[in-house]
Amino acid sequence: MSSAAHLDIDSRGLATLTLNRPDVHNAFDDQLIALLIDLITQARDDPRTRLLLLSSTGKSFSAGADLAWMRRMADASREDNLRDARKLALLMETLNGFPAPTLAKVQGAVMGGGVGLVSCCDIVVASEAAFFALSEVKLGLAPAAISPYVIAKMGVSQARRFFVSGERFSAVRAAAIGLVHEVVLASELDGKVLQLIDTLLANGPQAMRAAKQLVQVANPLEVTPALSEYTAGVIADLRASDEGREGLRAFLEKGTPSWVAGNR
């Protein structure tokens, strides 16, 4: 069975991390989260690494949480859900703090935690056909663990809209709000990414690391242990709530939760 993600480091120092669950649109589960943390750490600690490219196989970059995993966690204890949320927060922290430049190649659906991954990358290039959503509220949940990174990327005003609306938005809108840096035709995505790779690898590797650190020091993202624990608690409580359970059940059964029916 093929791995859910794999890492390759070439002779130029390009570390390519590929999400490889195309059958479920590269959705997250606990095993993929743990594997991604391990692979990002491997790339970080490898002296050859000059640039990290985050990509994925199939039609979608990442459609967020895996349904089977969500179903399992809906029946789990609050402590299990806390542990689970802390792992997702650690994934975001590990990618966001990567010392070398990071580049994301984005196509198709980018939902929930997928938006978190994009928010943690330095440069994001998307196909014009890509679309984004922070749709957790539609399930009675919230984009908790990823929130510090998403807010830092798209800004408070846009987060206030998309966190509570859960609406889908285009790659062009994602670029307009700062989540994506460049949008290209689907047929041009590979070429644009290769062009950026060449541009970055022509720069001094230590200079790029220092330049990236300059931004982080001058405009720090303060994800304190207290904030991480708060965001983990938010999602753990919502998953265990009546509303969260109902929302997930309705989604899995292709039904309509009561709060929608009550507003008709």
Results as ranks from 00 to 15, higher is better:
A171S: 15
Q216G: 03
Q195I: 04
M1P: 10
E93M: 08
L54P: 00
S62G: 02
S3N: 14
M111L: 14
E128V: 11
M70E: 11
A63Y: 04
Y230N: 12
A126L: 11
D190S: 05
S187F: 09
A34F: 06
G116A: 04
T102Q: 01
S135N: 15
A207M: 04
E246L: 03
E167Q: 14
A89C: 08
V164H: 13
L19N: 04
A65M: 13
W69Y: 15
A5H: 00
Y149C: 02
T57H: 13
K138C: 01
R168H: 11
V150L: 07
D10C: 05
L67H: 02
L52G: 03
Q31N: 11
N81T: 02
C120G: 10
V115F: 09
A104Y: 02
Y230G: 04
R48A: 15
V137N: 11
K212G: 04
Q42N: 08
T49I: 09
V156D: 10
Y149S: 06
A159G: 07
S77W: 08
A126H: 07
G13S: 04
R78K: 10
A176R: 14
S77G: 11
L139P: 01
L51Y: 08
A15F: 10
Y230E: 15
A218V: 04
A104T: 03
F251L: 12
L7Y: 02
A5G: 01
A142C: 06
G262S: 15
A129H: 11
R168M: 14
A109M: 14
R71H: 06
H181E: 01
L196A: 01
K254G: 03
N203Q: 15
T231W: 03
R50C: 12
L95R: 07
G178I: 05
F131R: 14
Q31E: 14
L91R: 00
H6F: 15
D46W: 10
L17G: 02
G255C: 10
G108Y: 03
M92E: 02
M111W: 13
N81W: 02
V118K: 07
L238G: 08
H6R: 14
G247S: 06
I235V: 15
R12M: 08
S157T: 12
T199I: 05
G247I: 04
A5P: 03
V260E: 13
V164I: 12
N96D: 15
R12P: 03
S11L: 12
L91N: 00
S187M: 01
S3I: 00
A68W: 04
L141K: 02
I177T: 06
V215A: 09
